[in-house]
């Protein structure tokens, strides 16, 4: 990395004003968005309660649940991820978490997570895609653990029914050391 030269400093000063997001459009008031947020918060509660069997019913059959390592990749298929679950893997993961054979799941931290900073990425006739920030606090054997993440949820609506079709969890430390845990994000 190079120290800023005089020209570079001028270049920084001359940068165009940052583009403003279209605020004030009232997208959060869209009824589908409200329902999506409600589902996301419900999911968070089920995960904190470790009610994994009920939790997996919130997902569509073809849903993906991804925790990538590479902070920039969109190609999860040809990258190494921490989790890249389809229905089959998700089901096995839940079995593992509840069946009692996994010593890390049995001794998992208690967690409390907060999701906020919702922004609407996309609304279609039957889907809503939201981004949000998650702060998770875990506690196990006298120690606190904190995990920050940027979440993307795509929710699919079918009449009264709403289910998660994609959950993408980008941990702020995804390409650095992430400590093993017996719980789910």
């Amino acid at each position: 990395m190079k120290t800023d030269t005089a020209e570079e400093v001028v270049a920084i000063d001359n940068r165009p004003a940052p583009q403003r997001y279209e605020v004030g459009l009232g997208q959060l008031a869209d009824p589908l968005v409200g329902r999506a947020i409600e589902l996301i918060w419900r999911e968070a509660q089920l995960l904190d309660d470790k009610d994994y069997e009920f939790w997996q019913t919130l997902y569509t059959e073809d849903a993906k649940y991804v925790i990538p390592v590479d902070p920039d990749t969109e190609d999860f298929e040809s990258s190494l991820n921490m989790v890249y679950d389809d229905a089959r893997m998700r089901h096995m993961r839940v079995t593992r978490l509840v069946q009692g054979y996994s010593m890390s799941a049995v001794a998992a931290a208690r967690t409390s997570r907060t999701i906020s900073r919702f922004t609407v990425e996309e609304i279609t006739a039957d889907t809503v895609t939201l981004r949000s920030a998650q702060v998770l606090v875990g506690f196990k054997r006298d120690k606190f653990q904190m995990l920050g993440a940027d979440l993307t949820h795509r929710i699919r609506f079918n009449g009264d029914d709403a289910r998660i079709e994609l959950k993408l969890i980008r941990l702020v430390n995804s390409d650095s050391a992430v400590n093993a845990s017996g719980f789910l994000l």
Partner: peptide, 13 residues
């Protein structure tokens, strides 16, 4: 990996 079915249990041990 940290969420793998093996590593998390190794790490706990």
């Amino acid at each position: 990996g940290p969420f793998g079915f093996g590593t998390s249990d190794d790490s706990e041990a």
